[in-house]
Design a protein around this nucleic acid. Structure first.
Length: 994
RNA sequence: GGGCGAUUAACUCAGCGGCUAGAGUAUCUCCUUUACACGGAGAGAGUCGGGGGUUCGAAUCCCUCAUCGCCCACCA
């Protein structure tokens, strides 16, 4: 039995105690065979690169609220935790660390040795991250913890790759990629960061091949001219006709290249180009086309069937060994030079030869590697691609959308069953975004999607399970093919021929198929050293965490996959709608013909007080563990939940904590204060309940006050349900806050103090207070689990076996059936359901509150000391008078007054020396308030208010359109209010305010 | 360049066609009343970014401008 509760809420002590019980009782573990409607969430796996930040705290708090509530609603709820290996990012941080600590580079180690180092880093941070999640109170099913590169996930990746490969959805392609010449790897688009750079526009003169003059191209990258294979001009350019069919002799190299027409070329301003367009201002109208070194030029090259001449080595030095086969002319002096040196030398050459027309400073943004920070080189290389533009992927992703959220039709109709021998799942659609505006982001992305480059030149990741024919005899190939066909007949492998040389690539299905791998390698095949893009494994997350691929024996059983996929909701930040959400949908659709989740909830992003992203480099980040230490976990969670509005960003002013020197925010005080208020209100309630003695004695009928708080509670539960149905965590938090602090603490508890004094009402009041406390704790538990859990235990000690049904219409259900076993001790019992509301009680309390507040305001106006009582005479309408009489003691207690008399409708002789105020439907004379100055001020102020609103209402009523078109009840309401205001105004004048 | 969001009290945000526009923090006054000073009772504080329009009625819907921010694309 725990001792008395401490006077102030001590989060650290409570968290430790509560967390232990949760863990011991395995409260968060679920089995597919458990009863209840399935409810599942997969965590967006945090990268193992670093500890979690406040964005994670928000993201995971919201998920935890969802899953805890679902659990309390009796659903078979599971939250699958895990982490992501985050290929490039993790390898980079480890490379940095190794360089700093050992002075060595990655290439100084054998591959497997370096991977071990990364593995060690991963182990370290995974522990940190999981510890943080637990500290945040996340109710994950820890037994199902996953990692995107563990054995089970590796199996899923291998199977997925094989199936996609076999279906022809994976191919080897030569494309321009974002190449990092420092680390020698391709980068994904999102791994490229743009930076403004000061550069120059160089104007280079190219002589026409027929000697009839020169044309001038403008470029920021003169060194790439070595790879030019055309010069383009806009067909609308007046000069185009004369140049049709002509050629240019490329300086230095001597290559003769055509002048082609392409409307991609921007017209210079002098020829009708847009004067506002910087490009048009700088352009000459002639564009050098270098398909091997510029993505747009590559596209032009494709359109015009131009040769591709790659003039660089992988380290971006000038080289004639990587595709520059048509003669280098006089370019020998450039070979082996870096991009930067080559640029200078090329410019110098043009200058020396009188072909540099001009050079203008130009500031533009250039893509830099997010890893090495050197400029990214568009570079032609062989990569693996996933054909996401195929209807089975892109089309399926678009068809997955909820019909109500599609704008203008997607153009992707359900595919015919015969087309691929597959059909889409029976209920096309159903994937719904909250807020719905994000559906558009998703749709547009898919409509403009390009094939996905899935290979990365890294060591940290899932190595691509393909072997390509590298060096061997024709005989080897022939024999291998026979062998491969046998493997294919056993469904152990698939093959494809890719590239100009139609190189044979074989994909092996099983990791442990050493026999096949050995055979291939003995015949001159080599395993691809590259690894898969991180998003390939995270795209499989809803599948792989739930046991896909399942062995055939499991498929019919109640497997995790069949019960929990599709998951209920994906809760994420908006920047990965494209990168992650899209891929999960495509994969889930492809492998299971199902959407991976029904709802996608995209929450706001937390910025600092200046609207900047929180980041390490800016030093404006807030560490969740610091807030947990300074304010408590519940405080952090409550504050975060209340910030989770419908908008896309929320701001959190960041300050230094003077005590610790760490970043914090005053916003967290909101949560801390609330948790403390809850703690103390419960402490008081528990004291009263204890001292009320025997709970089994017959209870008095509920008072109006009791009915009122129960009614208010019912409304609050309904509000919370409504908020949660729309993922409006802020509304949920606010509803709880307002109910608990304003209604329950400020009014109910204060008024109940009067009821507790009456022996006849003591037991029943204790019962109501216990009922409401119990239900409130459960209502708020998903959001602030620790403090509510602890208080709930204490309540059960003080008031065990409290029957909540029975003599009052309790708005709660006591405990969910079937949970008497394992979770008996913990609050997971039951989410409250809304009960009856009581309009009468709410109306009566409304009037009493007006009366009490009116008297309080007057006391303040007249500067009456808080403890000094005043004597009042109240004039009220008949029904009101009755209620005031009934609640006389409550009014006296809360307004610190003594009621001398309650008159009905009028008062023959008002008390002398009394100030008269209006409080709702009542008039109140307060004796002994003789501060004339204060009174005059008060009356003047009130008169002004009334005059203003009377004028507004009269104006409205004199508007013919208003009378004619506005709803009748509104018109009536305005008329009534006007009459009341006018009556009060005249009574103010009559009452001798002057 | 395209898309999205924000602009409401000093600060952070609700409200998104109809009560005198609300809350928390901060400020001011009073109060250490045995649940809570991480508290209580009050007060002051806003031409709802500017300008048009629709409507009987606009913070709320439409157009437009401005500022800030995010995402995507592009960067000869």
């Amino acid at each position: 039995m725990s001792a008395e509760l401490a006077k102030a809420y001590d989060p650290a002590a409570v968290q430790a105690e509560v967390a232990k019980v949760w863990e011991d009782e395995k409260c968060f573990h679920a089995e597919p065979t458990d009863p209840g409607e399935p409810y599942s969430i997969v965590i967006p796996p945090p990268n193992v690169t670093a500890a979690l930040h406040l964005g994670h705290a928000l993201n995971n708090t919201l998920q935890d609220i969802l899953v805890r509530r679902a659990r309390m609603q009796g659903k078979n709820a599971v939250w699958l935790p895990g982490t992501d290996h985050a290929g490039i990012a993790t390898q980079t941080v480890v490379e940095k660390r190794v360089l700093k600590e050992e002075g060595k580079r990655r290439t100084d180690f054998p591959r497997d040795e370096f991977v071990k180092k990364i593995q060690a880093w991963k182990d370290e941070y995974e522990q940190v991250i999981l510890g943080q999640l637990k500290a945040m109170g996340c109710s994950c099913d820890w037994d199902r913890c996953a990692f995107t590169m563990d054995e089970a996930r590796a199996k899923a990746v291998r199977e997925a790759f094989f199936q996609l490969f076999k279906a022809g959805l994976i191919y080897r392609g030569k494309r321009l990629v974002n190449w990092d010449p420092a680390t020698l790897t391709a980068l994904a688009d999102d791994e490229v960061e743009n930076r403004e750079v000061d550069g120059f526009f160089y104007y280079l003169k190219y002589p026409l091949a027929d000697g009839s003059g020169t044309i001038t191209v403008a470029t920021t990258r003169p060194e790439t001219m070595l790879g030019d294979t055309a010069v383009a001009i806009n067909p609308k350019d007046p000069r185009a006709a004369a140049l049709k069919g002509k050629f240019v002799k490329l300086p230095i190299v001597g290559r003769v290249i055509p002048i082609i027409e392409d409307d991609y070329v921007v017209l210079p301003v002098s020829l009708g180009g847009d004067p506002a367009d910087t490009k048009a201002q700088m352009a000459t109208g002639f564009l050098k086309v270098t398909p091997a070194h510029d993505p747009n030029d590559y596209d032009i090259g494709q359109r015009h069937n131009l040769p591709i001449v790659n003039v660089m080595a992988p380290d971006a030095s000038i080289s004639d060994k990587h595709g520059w086969t048509d003669g280098i002319g006089d370019a020998g002096f450039l070979l082996g030079k870096s991009r930067e040196e080559a640029r200078k030398l090329v410019v110098k050459w043009f200058k020396d030869n009188g072909l540099l027309e001009d050079q203008k400073p130009y500031r533009h943004s250039v893509g830099h590697s997010y890893r090495s920070h050197v400029p990214v080189e568009p570079y032609l290389s062989d990569q693996w691609y996933c054909r996401v533009t195929d209807d089975r992927l892109r089309g399926a992703a678009l068809r997955a959308m909820d019909k109500t959220q599609i704008t203008g039709g997607t153009g992707f109709q359900p595919m015919a069953e015969s087309e691929h021998g597959l059909k889409t799942h029976a209920t096309d659609g159903g994937l719904k975004f909250y807020p719905d505006r994000y559906a558009k982001t998703y749709q547009t992305w898919h409509e403009n999607i390009r094939d996905w480059c899935i290979s990365r030149q890294l060591w940290w990741g899932h190595q691509i399970p393909t072997w390509s024919f590298d060096a061997g005899t024709e005989q080897d190939v022939r024999e291998a093919l026979v062998y491969i066909q046998r493997l294919e007949s056993e469904d152990r492998a698939a093959h494809g021929n890719f590239g100009e040389a139609q190189t044979l690539h074989v994909c092996l299905r099983y990791e442990d198929d050493a026999q096949a791998a050995n055979y291939l390698e003995s015949r001159g095949f080599r395993r691809d050293p590259d690894v898969l893009d991180t998003w390939f494994s995270s795209g499989l997350w809803p599948l792989s965490t739930l046991g896909w691929p399942e062995s055939p024996a499991h498929r019919l059983a109640d497997s995790p996959l069949s019960i929990w996929n599709p998951t209920s909701v994906l809760c994420t930040a908006r920047e990965i709608i494209t990168l992650w959400v899209s891929r999960m949908v495509m994969f889930n659709e492809f492998f299971l013909r199902k959407i991976p989740f029904k709802d996608v909830f995209v929450h706001a992003m937390i910025q600092d007080g200046e609207g900047r992203k929180m980041s390490k480099s800016l030093g404006n980040g807030v560490d969740p563990l610091d807030i947990i230490a300074s304010h408590g976990t519940d405080a952090m969670r409550f504050t975060l939940a209340s910030m989770a509005t419908n908008t896309q960003d929320v701001r959190m002013p960041v300050e230094k904590d003077p005590a610790t020197g760490k970043n914090t925010s005053p916003k967290f005080d909101l949560g801390r204060n609330f948790a403390n208020k809850l703690w103390n209100a419960a402490r008081f309630a528990l004291m009263q309940i204890e001292s009320a003695g025997d709970k089994s004695v017959a209870k008095a009928a509920p008072t109006t006050l009791d009915l009122w708080i129960l009614s208010r509670f019912s409304r609050t539960v309904a509000e919370c349900d409504d908020a949660m149905a729309n993922y409006r965590f802020d509304q949920y938090a606010r509803a709880c806050y307002d109910f608990f602090w304003r209604d329950f603490c400020d009014w109910y508890i204060e008024a109940a103090k009067v009821q507790f004094k009456d022996p006849a009402q003591k037991a029943s009041t204790a019962h109501v207070i216990a009922t409401v406390l119990d239900a409130s704790l459960r209502l708020m538990h998903p959001m602030i689990p620790f403090v509510t859990e602890k208080l709930w235990w204490r309540l059960n000690e003080v008031y065990p076996n409290r029957g909540i049904e029975g003599w009052i219409n309790a708005p709660v259900n006591a405990r969910r059936p079937g949970t008497e076993g394992v979770s008996e001790r913990v609050i997971c019992a039951a989410w409250p359901t809304p009960g009856k509301t009581d309009e009468t009680a709410e109306a009566i309390l409304g009037h009493l509150q007006e009366l009490i507040t009116g008297i309080r305001v007057a006391r303040n106006d007249y500067k009456v000391q808080p403890r000094q009582s005043v004597t009042v005479t109240i004039v009220a309408p008949a029904c009101g008078a009755e209620q005031i009489e009934k609640h006389r003691e409550i009014v006296e207690s809360l307004a610190t007054c003594r009621i001398a008399a309650i008159a009905i409708d009028t008062l023959a002789s008002p008390p002398a020396n009394a100030a008269k105020i209006t409080a709702g439907p009542c008039e109140v004379y307060i004796e002994g308030l003789v501060d004339e100055a204060a009174e005059k001020q008060r009356i003047a102020r009130r008169r002004e208010e009334l005059t203003k609103s009377i004028a507004a209402m009269k104006g409205r009523l004199s508007n013919a359109g208003y009378i004619a078109k506005a709803p009748a009840n509104l018109v009536k309401q305005t008329q009534d209010q006007l009459a009341a205001a006018e009556a009060e105004l005249s009574s103010l004048s009559a009452g001798g305010g002057e």
